[in-house]
Design a protein around this nucleic acid. Structure first.
Lengths: 219, 219
DNA sequence: AAATATTTTTAAGTAAGCTTAAAAATTTTT
DNA sequence: AAAAATTTTTAAGCTTACTTAAAAATATTT
């Protein structure tokens, strides 16, 4: 399947998870940096291939076949990230950029070899779960916007779900990285902000960030 | 640059080395599995980009810029082959197939990281020399069609320059592989055939094969 | 609920990278 | 060196993945 199609399906998958399921053509177009018209166009083509269900003016919905394709690409992306992270001294941002290209030129055979080589890891260097060869994925974490603030309850950062360099730089600067411990001290639900404590620093995060920082409860 | 252009330039480079410099559009077309018309078309486009010198009905000749691009792609191909060979249990044929795709989606930065990781190797698993980051390449071997048959002179196989599965299978079956020792016992120049001795078996090879099996003199 | 703004869709057009068919040039055979 | 065969080129056309501009529908604001 073409790179354009794989990326389109992947974008629907990602937007379906992340935002409030806003997978109308315009959102996908923005994600991919193409025009709305191009997104509508592509949506029709994918519908013919039975990768999405398409109804005019509605959200784009992946079919089982489409979901399978998206997970296959996501699997390859995250396996590449894990491999490049292990072998080379590269920034997470660089690794992401390389994986973004390699993911589309990787046979299932090679993906499985990479997975084996790494010991069939369940998570990539961002903490994102790696779907297995059958497209199954296991996650238990939640965004910190939904974390509760019970006294003394601490969390472990499990993922930073973004490809934005500015966001990564911000995270790096404040010690927000995969595996680190934080305390969610307060939710300002009205203003959609969250206050956290990390390394004895209190940080107030707005929705853009709280929705893409994921954590697991600390045991 | 696009995949199609990189492959076109690479094909000219390869044909310029291998065959009797037969780099007319038809040969490149055959190499790439496209029509002659498409090859002529592409040749004109590459000329505009100053990647080749193009004159109607003549051989296609890479400019310095074109050669540089070809060597850059070849470098990435061979580095991928070396890496995949080291990490995974895959056949040389599979490795070649994967590298053929990955080579076009690899930044110079990543290529250099792979090279460093492998200790900046000079040869890939086929024995083909890996151009360095500046596009320099070092070779001393010759095809067995040109090897001389001096009494008792033996050679070490340095490369099997092909992507053809049948050829690889043939080589595997007869012990023709990188590093093995052979004796070139007779040149039938009139018939363009070469007789070799390997593992006490005498094999008579025709030009198709003698022109792509490369050897170094044994010290 | 009307007016306004935004988004989606349609329509027409472009560039890349191919195709086939036929004309033009070159190469090979006799 | 003429005839035959092959190769290269030109021409016209196709598909994919985009674009911009304008029409149609939906969503938001007042």
């Amino acid at each position: 399947m073409s790179v354009a199609i794989e990326n389109f399906v992947k974008a629907i998958y990602k937007n379906g998870k992340r935002d409030n399921n806003d997978t109308k053509p315009g959102n996908i177009a923005k994600e991919l940096g193409i025009s709305n018209a191009a997104a509508t166009d592509m949506a029709k083509k994918l519908a013919i291939k039975d990768l999405i269900d398409y109804e005019k003016y509605q959200e784009l919905k992946l079919t089982d076949k489409g979901t399978k394709m998206a997970l296959n690409v996501v699997r390859k992306h995250r396996l590449w990230e894990a491999l490049l992270f292990k072998l080379f001294d590269l920034s997470l941002h660089d690794i992401h950029r390389e994986a973004e290209l390699l993911e589309h030129q990787t046979s299932d055979l090679l993906a499985n070899k990479i997975s084996d080589y790494l010991g069939n890891p369940k998570f990539d260097p961002h903490g994102d779960p790696i779907p297995n060869a059958r497209g199954e994925i296991t996650t238990t974490d939640t965004s910190i916007s939904l974390a509760n603030t019970e006294e003394g309850k601490s969390y472990i950062i499990s993922r930073l779900m973004s490809d934005d360099k500015e966001f990564f730089d911000f995270c790096a600067q404040h010690g927000l990285k995969y595996g680190n411990s934080i305390l969610v001290s307060k939710q300002f639900s009205k203003n959609k902000m969250t206050q956290i404590l990390i390394h004895n620093n209190t940080i107030l995060l707005n929705e853009d960030f709280t929705s893409i920082i994921y954590v697991n409860e600390q045991d």
